[in-house]
């Protein structure tokens, strides 16, 4: 099996102590960065902390900055990376808890802010059955429903870093997912939550969010579509009275 020596440079911290630790080991083809971290934990340093769960790119736990770019550790092959020195840091634009474990509280608070659930004027009871949808109606928003809340887009967004109030790409994409759902009746209510100065108008289409998204959700596109909806709504409001 093809093997090579690699050095993991891991940014470690706990409380106030911060340090860069180097771990050298032999990686074989097929190993992911997450496999590398597990190897370090098992054989070199049991105190290393990182968050991971499914190992197959669907739980969204192992997002981290690998060689400067936010990626899922479980979906990144060591042999696909350009260098044999691999720097690993916790996600940016979030507080840290320990080592590679970032604090997602603010991220999830912002997600909650856009009411990411079906809003109905009159709720159906369970006995009345489900809200029926055709495949075409599903296709309208399916792409935006694939988000796994891994925080990569939020971490790469320059504005999410400079403005703590900005809702960020994931939360806005989530809002758009419900705007495009024909079962949802919260259109105007939700639009008011996302078209403020800390909502879609903070996006200037750097579009890095769509570049790093492991699920190809394209949050940048979603935010531009929210802008369009907000403009049309404002235009209508202007001429209504």
């Amino acid at each position: 099996m093809e093997e090579k020596n690699v050095v993991f440079v891991v940014k470690r911290f706990y409380n106030d102590s911060e340090e860069e630790r180097r771990y050298e080991f032999t990686a074989s083809r097929g190993m992911t960065v997450l496999d590398g971290l597990y190897y370090i934990k098992d054989h070199l340093d049991a105190t290393l902390a990182f968050r991971a769960s499914c190992r197959m790119g669907i739980c969204g736990s192992c997002g981290m900055i690998i060689n400067g770019r936010p990626m899922l550790a479980c979906s990144t092959q060591i042999f696909d990376l350009d260098s044999d020195i691999i720097t690993v840091e916790p996600l940016k634009n979030m507080d840290g808890i320990k080592d590679l474990v970032a604090d997602f509280n603010e991220f999830f608070e912002k997600h909650k802010k856009v009411k990411p659930y079906l809003i109905r004027k009159v709720e159906k009871s369970v006995e009345e059955g489900e809200y029926i949808q055709t495949p075409d109606q599903l296709k309208e928003y399916r792409q935006y429903a694939l988000c796994i809340k891994c925080g990569l887009c939020y971490s790469v967004c320059a504005i999410a870093g400079s403005n703590n109030e900005y809702l960020g790409p994931a939360s806005l994409a989530s809002a758009y997912r419900f705007m495009k759902d024909n079962r949802d009746e919260g259109g105007e209510e939700r639009l008011l939550l996302v078209d403020g100065h800390d909502g879609c108008w903070r996006c200037h289409f750097m579009a890095e969010c769509s570049e790093v998204c492991p699920k190809e959700v394209d949050p940048a596109k979603a935010i531009q579509m929210i802008k369009r909806k907000a403009f049309i709504a404002a235009f209508k409001r202007l001429f209504r009275r």
Partner: peptide, 24 residues
């Protein structure tokens, strides 16, 4: 977040790809 940090985020090139450079 301070202005200095913001300037680093807006104009720094590390961790950005092509669309990021275009933004900078």
């Amino acid at each position: 977040m301070s202005l200095k940090n913001a300037i680093g985020l807006w104009f720094g090139l590390r961790g950005k790809s092509f669309t990021g450079y275009a933004f900078v």
